[in-house]
């Protein structure tokens, strides 16, 4: 599928239809998800209604990590095959990903205050998500500051791949260090026992909403890049060579 989409013209044709679909699904998913989150699902056993912020916080964290994984994958493709579409994709993934990370951190803070009585704690997971935010920011800075965009693409892709080491650290940080954060809660075995069906529906719907929002933003970012490249379509080469025998 990736090689099929790699042709910019084909991508543009597909994106024209995919973009509004993503937007629509995202809006619908948000409506359903928020309904489940705020109305239908039961208040959490110990935390009461305050826990409802989980429905914003947890999917945001998932999407932040998913976005970075996509960014790192696009960077790998860009580094190995030097495909400009991969560059555009990686660049487009960055801002939405950073926004999700910030959202996760902010809502996590808001959630933490009433429950744990602290805005912040330097435990493994929170610190590594903060590190993720810094990596996103540094990545975007690389693109912005380096004038030669071809070199910027290359250097940014190297940086993004190195930064990927942070993702497993986020994932396993809660297992390696027992601290404030509760261990990963959605696993197939426990799902039915601890969380009611409505809660899981709410979480998954919100995750879908975020993902589609991410997809919509990214696709439009890539389309903008393609349009810019098309507009700057180069003219004939500046010089020709003639070889003569002396």
């Amino acid at each position: 599928m990736i090689s099929y989409l790699a042709n910019p013209a084909r991508f543009e044709r597909l994106a024209k239809y995919a973009s509004p679909i993503f937007a629509l699904v995202s809006i619908v998913a948000f409506i359903i998800g928020l309904y489940f989150a705020l109305v239908k699902s039961p208040p959490e056993k110990y935390q009461g209604d305050a826990a409802r912020i989980m429905y914003v916080h947890v999917p945001a964290a998932w999407c932040a990590m998913m976005a970075y994984t996509a960014l790192a994958a696009a960077s790998l493709v860009s580094f190995v095959w030097r495909h400009p579409l991969a560059d555009s994709a990686a660049k487009a993934f960055a801002l939405p990903g950073a926004a999700f990370t910030f959202l996760a951190l902010a809502t996590g803070s808001l959630w933490g205050k009433p429950i744990w009585n602290t805005w912040w704690e330097w435990d493994g997971r929170m610190t590594s998500v903060l590190v993720l935010l810094f990596i996103y920011l540094a990545y975007m800075a690389l693109w912005a500051v380096i004038e030669d965009k071809k070199r910027a693409a290359r250097l940014a892709s190297i940086f993004a791949m190195v930064g990927f080491i942070n993702i497993p650290i986020i994932k396993y940080s809660v297992e390696w260090w027992n601290s404030l954060h509760q261990p990963a809660s959605i696993s197939k075995l426990e799902a039915n026992s601890i969380y009611s069906g409505e809660m899981i529906t709410a979480l998954l719907t919100m995750a879908l909403a975020y993902t589609c929002l991410f997809g919509w933003l990214s696709i439009n970012g890539i389309r903008r890049d393609i349009a810019k490249a098309k507009a700057a379509r180069p003219t004939a080469p500046a010089a020709t060579a003639t070889i003569t025998e002396l």
Binding site: T127, V131, F134, A138, A141, L142, F159, I169
Partner: peptide, 26 residues
């Protein structure tokens, strides 16, 4: 190495290395 071409890189070099140095500091 990433910032070698931009002279001394200024703040960007710190921005790039900081995320990885945080765990080391901790």
């Amino acid at each position: 190495a990433l910032m070698a071409k931009r002279g001394k890189g200024g703040f960007l070099i710190i921005l790039i290395s900081a995320p990885f140095l945080i765990p080391v500091l901790i």
